[in-house]
Computed example of a mutant assay.
Amino acid sequence: MNKRSVGTFYENLAARYLEKQNVMILERNYRNKRGEIDLIGLDPDGWLIFVEVKYRSSEYSGNPLAAVDERKQWIISKVAAGYLMTHYRSLDVKCRFDVVGIEGSEIRWIKNAFEFR
């Protein structure tokens, strides 16, 4: 399995996990000229969530949540701003940035993992 198909598999796993938590998935692999966001959804409390999915096969590969470094946060923030302006014509939308970390068979959802950069 190549890297892209592995990523797609775990993004789909994360989407199914979030859907079981009553998150409505609005977009998968949303792209604009600044980059990509893995998942965009609407949580049960009305928050628009931008989700980065990170997978590691084991603890020896490093913590998947730590892989969303400051540079990645900046990229996600800029893509999210473009999404908000395109879809809502405003940056004044109740939203947050979450990370779903998958390590082996364990899934962890970190809500509000980082602030807009």
Rank of each mutant, 00 (worst) to 15 (best):
I49P: 00
L48R: 10
K20W: 02
L42C: 09
P64F: 01
N112K: 14
N32R: 03
L18D: 01
G41F: 12
V99E: 07
R16C: 00
E11N: 07
M1S: 11
F97R: 12
V79T: 11
V93W: 07
Y10K: 04
L18W: 06
K72Y: 10
M85F: 09
L42A: 06
N12W: 02
K3W: 02
I107F: 03
Y17V: 01
K111L: 09
K33C: 10
F116M: 12
I102E: 10
E115V: 10
R89V: 00
G104S: 13
E27R: 15
I110S: 13
G62K: 04
F97V: 06
Y83F: 12
F114S: 07
R117F: 14
S61Y: 14
E11Q: 13
D38K: 10
L26F: 09
A14V: 02
K54N: 09
K78W: 05
V6F: 04
S58Y: 09
V100W: 05
K94D: 08
K111G: 10
S61D: 15
R117T: 00
M1T: 08
R16G: 00
S57I: 03
R56Q: 14
V100T: 11
L91P: 00
W47F: 15
A67C: 07
I102C: 08
A14I: 01
F97D: 11
